[in-house]
Computed example of a mutant assay.
Amino acid sequence: MKKTLVVASLPLVFSAAANAQSSVTLYGLIDVGIVYTNNAASQKQWLMSSGNIQGSRWGLRGAEDLGGGLKAIFVLENGFSIASGRLGQGGDEFGRQAYVGLQSARAGTVTFGRQYDSIADFTGVFEVADQWSPFYGAHPGDLDNMNNTNRVNNTVKFKSLTYGGFSFGGMYSLGGVAGQFNRNQVWSLGAGYGNGPLTAGIAYVNVKDPNFSYFGNNSTSSATASNMTASRVYSGYASAKTQEIWTAGAAYAFGGATVGATYSNTQFKDIGTLAGLPATGAGGDAKFHNVEVNFKYQFTPALLAGAAYDYTKGYGVNDAKYHQGVIGLDYFLSKRTDVYADAIYQHATGTDSTGNKAVANINFLSASSTQNQVMGIVGMRHKF
């Protein structure tokens, strides 16, 4: 009888041991605001906006200790709109992130799935739209992906440990097209440094067939039409064969103040290669320089204020220029809940990707009917 009880209890013992070495965390964030725009397709507009400073989400994060400093890890992260309850990222259930991998205390981390590229890991954090500003304050159209609009499917990703303040990493996405190894391929590399008040990073992304691999990798994306319709900044270049992005950023903190800057160069190459898609400047390359300078000050542990100026200059087949200013306040009611207010102004000149006179087009808003656009937002964010 005693032997029977011992044997029967063994699964419970092993189960308890396994649970002691594993963890799964449910987490999330809800961010909602009211937006006013002075000119959206020639009309004033009021709207409710979800996921402003950070995308509204819920997710599961887990880790299992395998021994010897090795862990199995996973993340499943869903994005949604608090305003409508709809799924984000084109309707994908775990459209923000979905990956599994191994984490070594000696070598670094390798993961597999839908993930961010190296810009998100090493340079995006220096842009104000990844700090205190809503995504409307990202660089025009988020053309350099420093606000992480575009995730990447089918990726193998590596990120190193930190050695004396330095870290590095990279990712490769398999296109998966039979007989065409380079079709829809995406790869990136990056490195970062952080020591005391100084942080810095650089990153590079190379994208084949960006209309499908980078902008069109959600469940509702088109396999034949343009998926690059969100902004006039780049919508005319959907037929480009390759997109290349170089980015760099740095920040320096002193007292309650932090000054930062970013630079990016984005190129849509061989426009007209993908048939049946918008091809402004066919046969050429559309290129953009972007420079941002920003400043924030922590008046108290609860109150932060920030300001930024961003300049985008098109060259190659276009000469569009965008000047953008952002100011904002963020007040924390608690460690998990804050309220914020921001205002953004953009001015455009030259000829944009549509081949027409450039008009202001703040990120994720309908384009203005004029060269100028102003928007304001007040909102609330809660983390759980």
Rank of each mutant, 00 (worst) to 15 (best):
V6E: 14
V6C: 13
S9N: 13
S9A: 14
L10E: 15
L10K: 13
S15E: 03
A17P: 01
A18Y: 08
V24K: 06
V24E: 09
Y27K: 12
G28M: 01
L29F: 02
V32N: 10
V32A: 14
V35Q: 15
Y36R: 07
Y36S: 13
N38K: 07
A41P: 00
S42W: 05
W46P: 00
M48K: 03
G51V: 15
I53C: 06
G55C: 11
D65A: 14
G68L: 11
F74D: 02
V75D: 15
E77P: 10
N78W: 04
G79S: 11
S81C: 04
I82C: 01
A83G: 03
A83Y: 02
L87D: 02
G88P: 07
G90K: 07
F94P: 04
Y99T: 02
Q103L: 13
Q115H: 12
F126P: 05
V128I: 14
Q131A: 15
P134Q: 15
Y136L: 14
Y136R: 06
A138P: 03
H139S: 11
H139R: 04
P140M: 11
G141M: 11
N145K: 00
N148G: 03
N150S: 13
V152F: 05
N153I: 01
K157E: 07
Y163L: 03
G165L: 07
F168S: 06
F168H: 13
L174R: 00
R183W: 01
V186T: 07
L189K: 01
A191P: 07
G192S: 09
G192I: 12
G194D: 06
A200Q: 04
V205L: 14
V207E: 04
P210R: 01
N211C: 05
Y214V: 08
F215K: 08
G216R: 07
N217R: 08
S222M: 12
S222I: 12
A225F: 00
A225G: 12
S226A: 12
T229C: 05
T229F: 09
V233F: 02
K241E: 11
Q243Y: 02
E244T: 12
A250W: 04
Y252K: 10
D270E: 10
G272C: 03
L277A: 08
P278W: 03
T280Y: 14
A282C: 04
A286L: 07
H289R: 04
H289I: 02
N290G: 05
N290S: 12
V291Q: 00
N294H: 00
L303R: 02
L304S: 08
A305V: 15
G306Q: 15
A307Y: 04
A307K: 02
D310R: 12
K313G: 04
Y315V: 08
G316D: 11
V317I: 15
N318Y: 01
N318F: 03
N318R: 11
D319M: 03
D319G: 05
A320N: 14
K321H: 11
H323L: 02
H323M: 01
Q324F: 08
V326C: 00
T337R: 05
V339C: 01
D342W: 06
I344R: 05
Q346A: 15
Q346E: 15
H347W: 00
A348K: 07
G350W: 06
G355M: 10
V359I: 09
I362K: 09
L365N: 10
T370K: 09
Q371S: 15
Q373T: 13
Q373W: 10
M375C: 10
M375N: 10
M375W: 07
R381Q: 15
